[in-house]
Design a binder for these strands. Structure first.
Length: 846
DNA sequence: GCAAGGTC
C-alpha cells in the first residue's frame, strides 16, 4: 500500500480525486478521514493531518541531580545532556516548581532565578494531535511506500518531517518520498507524483529552529513579566517574537499622538447660488495659519453679494479595477466594513467549509489559468442581485482579470465558488460573501472613469474653490461600491458667469495627530515588516486584546501595554523590534541552504536571551513598580468617597466576576456592583451625583453610560406592576406581581407582592425599558412583559422554567438545521461538512 | 500558566 500524507484533510481528498481513476472511497481510521483508491493495481491511501501534529516543549519532568554530575535526569531515569553553558553554575533544582509562598505571597510555580537555566533547557517534541498520530501510525504499519505531500513551504516540510518521525517508529523500512506541488490541479499533482523527490531535512530543521527560538524567548520573557509582579493565576503577561514588536508599533503610534502639538488654523467656507442649486466652496488658501489673515479675507468679502466663475477645469481620471483578494487584502477590506480580522477569518473559514468560497489563507493575487472565470461568473448569476451584471460581463466576450503584485501558485486568490442565497446565510456571512463575490466580479470589470471638476469663483478678488467628482463610466464601480466616496454633482456652470454669494463663515480648527491603527491597517503594517504570517496575524492581534495590552478599535494601548513595551524596550530591546524576525529569516535561509546548523542558530539565540536576562533580572524592582502602576492606572475608576483612595475595577478572586472596590481594602470596605458586560471607566463624572461613571457594553448591544452608585437617582427605577400572581390566584388570593431592581446587586426581577409567603419570582433582563402587558403566557400563565433594548422591543415570558421555552428552543434548532441543509450550495465537490454550532443559552439570554 | 505556526 502507498501512503500519501498531506497537511490537511481537504488536500488529502482532492489529491485522491486527482490521482484516482474512479471515485476514491472515503473511509475512516480511528475517526480520521482517509481516501482509498487504486492506481495500476496498487492500493493507495491518502490521509490529511491538521497542521503540526507535534509541538515543542521543555522537558517537564527534568531534574538536575548531583548524583548525575548536575546532568538533567528525566522521570524515566534517562540522562539528558546538559546544555547549561560553563558560565552558569549547574542548577540544583527543577525548571518547574509547585506553587510556593514567599513572605506569605503566593508566587506561582515559576521562579525568577530559574529563567537563565530555562533559556538553556533542552526541548523535546511532544504529541499534539494524538488521534491523528494514532491513525497515521496504523496506516504506516501497513504501507510499503510513504509519500509526504504536505504544503510546499518551510512549515510544510517540518510538518512532513514530524509526521515521518512518527511513522518511522512503527515502520522504518518503507521507502519515503516527497511530492512537491504548488497548486492542487491535475497537471501539478500528476507531475509532482511522477517526479518524487527526497524530504528536505535542512528546510525542516530551519522550521524547527523557528519553533525552538519562539518557545525559548516566549516562555522566558512571558514568565519574567508574569512573575515580576504576580497578579494571581490567569493573569499572564505575554511576550513573543511577533506579538511584542506588534505591540511596539501600537505604542509608538500612541507616543507620536501624545507628542503631537496641535496647531490652530482657520478655514473659510462660502455658499453660492440659489437653492436648490446652491453649493459650497472653500477659500483657495485651504488653511490659514494666522487668524488675522483669515479675518482680512472675511473683511474683503463682507459686502460682496456676487461672485464670478473665473475658471472651470475638467480632468478625467481612470480608476483601475481592484486586484484579486488574498488574505491580507480581504481582511483590510472587511475591516472597513466593520468585521475584525479575526472574525473575518472565522467567517471565511465557515464559508469555505460550506463550499461558498475558495481556500481563505493565500498570498496569491493572480488568478491561475486553470481557474474557470466564465464558469464562476455563470454560477454567480444564480444570485439575483448579481444576475444583470454577470450577464453583461458574459456578453462582452472573453473575460480579462486584473492581476495583483504577489503571484504565488499555492492556491488561487480568494473567490466565490458557488452561488449563495442572502436569506439562507447569516447576516455577517452574507456580508463577507457579498464582499468576496463583488470583488471577484470587479476584478473582471473595466476601469471606472471619473471626471473631476475644479471651479474657481472670484469674490472681491478672493478665490474660492469647489470640486466635484462625477462618474462618467461606472466600470467596476457598478458592482463594487466599497471604500469609495460618493459622487458630488455640481450645478452646471460657465466661465465668466455671475453667481449669488450668500456669505462666508470662518471656522477655527486644529491639526489632527496621526490616526491610531485600525486592525486592517495594523495587519498591513505587520505584513510589510514581515511579522507573523497570513494565517497568524489576526490571532496575534486578538492575543494583545486578551492579555489587555490593547483596547478599542482603532487600537489603543492600555497603560499596561505601554509599560510592558517600555520595560522590554529598555532591557530587552531585541524582542520589541521586528529585526529579530528578519534575522531569524536570514538564519533560517542559511540552515535551509546547509550553511548553518539548527544547533548553532538556536544556541546563539539562547546566549542572546541570556544576555537579555542579565539586564532584566537586576532591574526587577523597577519593572515591578512600572507594571504595578500601569495596572492600577488601567483599573482606576475614581476616588473613594469614604477614604479618598483609588476606586478600582477588580475581579472577585472566588467567582472571577468584576466589581468596583477601594484600593484601601481591607481598611476600607467600599464596593460597588457591576452589571454584565465589558466595563470601562469614564473620566466624566455623573452629572446628577458627581460619582464616577462607567461605560458598559453588554453582549451584542450598544454601550451604555452608567453612574457607579446604585443609589444615584439615575439608577433608580420605579417598581412596575406587571400582572397577577398565578400561584396566589390558584389559592384564590388576588396578589400582584411587581418588577423591581435590587439596588445591591443591580439585578432586576419580578416577584409576588406577598413575597413573604409566596415564592413566585422570575428573572428579568438587566436593562432596557420595561412595560407591562395585559397578556399572560399561554404555557405557564406568567405575565408577558415587553423589554425595549437597542435592538428594538422584545416581548417575553419571564418564567425561566416555562414549558414554552423548551419547545421554542427545539423549534429554533430544527429551523436552524433546516436552514443549514437548504443553504448548502449544489456544488459537485462539496467540501467536508461543518458541524452545526450548539446555541449557547447563556449568551442568548442577554 | 508560556510562543508562533499550521489547521478545524
Amino acid at each position: 500500500m502507498k501512503l500519501v500524507v498531506t497537511e490537511k484533510n481537504i488536500a488529502a481528498q482532492k489529491i485522491a480525486d486527482l490521482l484516482s481513476v474512479g471515485k476514491p472511497k472515503a473511509d475512516k481510521v480511528y475517526n480520521t478521514p482517509v481516501y482509498r483508491f487504486q492506481v495500476d493495481g496498487d492500493e493507495w491511501v491518502t490521509i490529511g493531518l491538521r497542521g503540526h501534529i507535534l509541538e515543542p516543549d521543555f522537558m517537564p519532568s527534568i531534574v538536575y541531580k548531583k548524583s548525575s554530575g548536575w546532568q538533567g535526569v528525566t522521570a524515566e531515569g534517562e540522562v539528558v545532556p546538559a546544555h547549561i553553558p560553563d558560565f552558569l553554575p549547574k542548577p540544583p533544582f527543577k525548571t518547574k516548581r509547585k506553587p510556593f509562598k514567599e513572605d506569605g505571597v503566593e508566587m506561582g510555580a515559576w521562579k525568577m532565578d530559574a529563567l537563565p537555566y530555562l533559556a538553556y533547557a533542552p526541548i523535546e517534541k511532544k504529541p499534539k494531535e494524538k488521534d491523528i498520530i494514532r491513525s497515521l501510525k496504523n496506516l504506516a504499519k501497513k504501507s510499503d511506500e510513504i509519500i509526504i505531500a504536505t504544503d510546499f513551504d518551510r512549515e510544510g516540510e517540518l510538518i512532513g518531517s514530524d509526521a515521518l518521525s512518527c511513522m518511522k517508529e512503527v515502520n522504518d523500512t518503507a521507502p519515503v518520498f516527497r511530492a512537491r506541488y504548488s497548486a492542487i490541479t491535475k497537471d501539478e499533482i500528476q507531475h509532482a507524483f511522477s517526479h518524487l523527490v527526497e524530504l528536505d531535512n535542512d528546510l525542516a530543521q530551519a522550521g524547527e529552529s523557528r519553533q525552538d527560538i519562539d518557545l525559548i524567548w516566549g516562555a522566558v520573557l512571558t514568565r519574567y513579566l508574569t512573575i515580576v509582579k504576580f497578579a494571581g493565576y490567569g493573569n499572564v503577561r505575554s511576550s513573543g517574537r511577533v506579538q511584542t514588536p506588534t505591540l511596539a508599533l501600537i505604542v509608538a503610534r500612541e507616543r507620536e499622538r501624545m507628542a503631537f502639538v496641535p496647531e490652530d488654523y482657520w478655514v473659510i467656507k462660502a455658499r453660492f447660488g440659489k437653492e436648490p442649486e446652491d453649493f459650497e466652496a472653500t477659500h483657495a488658501m485651504a488653511r490659514f495659519k494666522a487668524e488675522a489673515q483669515a479675518n482680512a479675507v472675511m473683511g474683503h468679502v463682507e459686502d460682496a453679494s456676487k461672485g464670478v466663475i473665473s475658471s472651470i477645469e475638467k480632468r478625467k481620471r481612470t480608476v483601475a479595477a481592484p486586484v484579486p483578494f488574498n488574505t491580507t487584502s480581504l481582511m483590510a477590506a472587511a475591516a472597513s466594513e466593520g468585521l475584525s480580522p479575526a472574525r473575518t477569518m472565522r467567517i471565511a473559514e465557515s464559508l469555505y467549509m460550506d463550499g461558498y468560497i475558495s481556500y481563505p489563507r493565500v498570498d496569491n493575487t493572480v488568478y491561475p489559468e486553470s481557474l474557470d472565470l466564465e464558469g464562476t461568473v455563470r454560477k454567480l448569476s444564480d444570485v439575483a442581485v448579481y444576475r444583470p451584471y454577470c450577464q453583461e460581463l458574459l456578453s462582452k466576450g472573453a473575460l480579462v482579470a486584473t492581476r495583483g503584485k504577489k503571484e504565488t501558485t499555492d492556491h488561487p486568490p480568494i473567490h466565490p465558488t458557488a452561488a449563495a442565497d442572502p436569506d439562507k446565510l447569516g447576516a455577517p456571512e452574507w456580508k463577507l460573501y457579498n464582499l468576496i463575490a463583488r470583488r471577484f466580479l470587479a476584478t473582471l470589470s473595466e476601469s471606472a472613469v471619473v471626471e473631476g471638476t475644479k471651479v474657481t469663483i472670484d469674490v472681491a478678488s478672493e478665490p474660492f474653490v469647489t470640486r466635484g467628482d462625477v462618474l462618467v463610466k461606472p466600470g467596476f464601480r457598478a458592482i463594487y461600491p466599497y471604500g469609495l466616496k460618493k459622487d458630488e454633482q455640481l450645478p452646471s456652470l460657465e466661465e465668466g458667469q455671475s453667481v449669488d454669494f450668500q456669505g462666508a463663515t470662518c471656522t477655527k480648527k486644529q491639526t489632527e495627530p496621526p490616526a491610531r491603527y485600525s486592525q486592517g491597517k495594523l495587519i498591513q503594517e505587520m505584513e510589510k515588516l514581515g511579522l507573523g504570517t497570513k494565517a497568524t496575524r489576526h490571532a496575534i492581534i486578538e492575543r494583545l486584546y486578551t492579555v489587555k495590552y490593547v483596547q478599542n478599535d482603532p487600537i489603543e494601548p492600555s497603560q499596561l501595554g505601554i509599560a510592558v513595551c517600555d520595560a522590554l524596550g529598555k532591557f530587552a530591546p531585541q524582542i520589541t523590534s521586528p529585526d529579530m524576525t528578519a534575522t531569524l529569516e536570514e538564519d533560517m535561509n542559511k540552515i535551509a541552504a546547509g550553511e548553518k546548523s539548527r544547533k548553532d542558530v538556536v544556541d546563539l539565540s539562547r546566549d542572546i536571551l541570556h544576555d537579555v536576562l542579565d539586564e532584566l533580572l537586576p532591574h526587577q524592582e523597577e519593572v515591578k513598580d512600572a507594571l504595578a502602576d500601569a495596572v492600577a492606572a488601567d483599573a482606576y475608576v475614581g476616588p473613594c468617597p469614604k477614604c479618598g483612595k483609588d476606586l478600582q475595577l477588580r475581579a472577585s478572586s472566588k467567582t472571577r466576576s468584576m466589581f468596583i472596590g477601594c484600593a484601601g481594602w481591607p481598611d476600607c470596605d467600599v464596593t460597588y456592583p457591576l452589571p454584565k458586560g465589558k466595563v470601562e471607566a469614564l473620566e466624566e463624572k455623573c452629572p446628577t451625583c458627581g460619582m464616577p461613571q462607567i461605560k458598559v457594553t453588554a453582549f451584542r448591544s450598544k454601550p451604555r453610560t452608567l453612574c457607579i452608585d446604585p443609589n444615584c437617582p439615575t439608577n433608580q427605577e420605579p417598581d412596575v406592576v406587571v400582572g397577577k400572581c398565578p400561584t396566589c390566584a390558584e389559592k384564590g388570593l388576588d396578589k400582584k406581581l411587581i418588577a423591581s431592581k435590587n439596588p445591591r446587586t443591580l439585578k432586576r426581577f419580578i416577584r409576588c407582592e406577598n413575597y413573604e409567603e409566596c415564592e413566585t419570582s422570575y428573572p428579568l433582563p438587566q436593562y432596557g425599558e420595561l412595560t407591562a402587558t395585559e397578556e399572560t403566557c399561554e404555557h405557564c400563565g406568567a405575565p408577558m412583559v415587553i423589554v425595549k433594548t437597542a435592538r428594538g422591543p422584545w416581548k417575553l415570558c419571564p418564567n425561566f422554567n416555562c414549558p414554552g421555552k423548551e419547545k421554542e428552543a427545539e423549534e429554533k434548532e430544527a429551523k436552524a438545521a433546516q436552514k443549514k441543509v437548504a443553504a448548502k450550495p449544489t456544488a459537485k465537490k462539496a467540501p467536508a461538512k461543518k458541524t452545526a454550532k450548539k446555541p449557547s443559552p447563556k449568551k442568548e439570554k442577554e
